[in-house]
Amino acid sequence: MPKTPPSPSPAPAAPRNEYTVDELARVTDSTVRNVRAYQDRGLLAPPEKRGRVGVYDDTHVSRLKLINHLLARGYTLANIQDLIKAVDEGHDLRSILGLETAIGSRWSRERPKKYSLLELLQMFGDKASPSALSKAVELGLLERKGLSFVANSPAALSAGATMAHEGIPLADLLDAVRISRPHFNAVAKAMVDLVVRQLDRYDAGALPPPADVPALVEAIWRVRPLAMVLVESEMNRALEEASGDYLGDRVAGIMEKLGSTHEEHTLPPASSDGEAKAAGHAGAEKAKAKKSAR
Rank of each mutant, 00 (worst) to 15 (best):
R63L: 10
R26T: 15
L97K: 07
A171N: 02
A136P: 01
A161G: 06
A284L: 11
S131D: 15
S180C: 05
S30D: 00
E264A: 11
R106L: 07
L230P: 00
K127M: 11
T76F: 03
G248H: 10
T4D: 05
K85V: 05
I67E: 09
Y38A: 00
H262G: 01
L174F: 11
D22H: 15
L142H: 12
D245H: 14
D172W: 09
N185H: 00
G140W: 08
Q198T: 13
L174W: 13
M163H: 01
T101L: 12
R197S: 06
A289R: 04
L43K: 11
G253W: 07
A13E: 03
A252Q: 03
L97P: 02
S292T: 06
A206F: 06
E263C: 03
V53H: 15
A219C: 03
V35W: 02
V223P: 05
A186F: 11
F124Y: 05
I84S: 10
A37L: 10
A151M: 08
R250I: 00
P2N: 14
M255V: 15
K288W: 03
S292P: 06
A102H: 02
D193V: 04
Y19L: 03
I168D: 01
V137F: 01
R224T: 08
E264W: 07
L99H: 00
P8E: 04
L64E: 02
Y246F: 07
G125E: 04
R144K: 14
E100N: 12
N34H: 02
A219T: 08
A282P: 04
A284H: 00
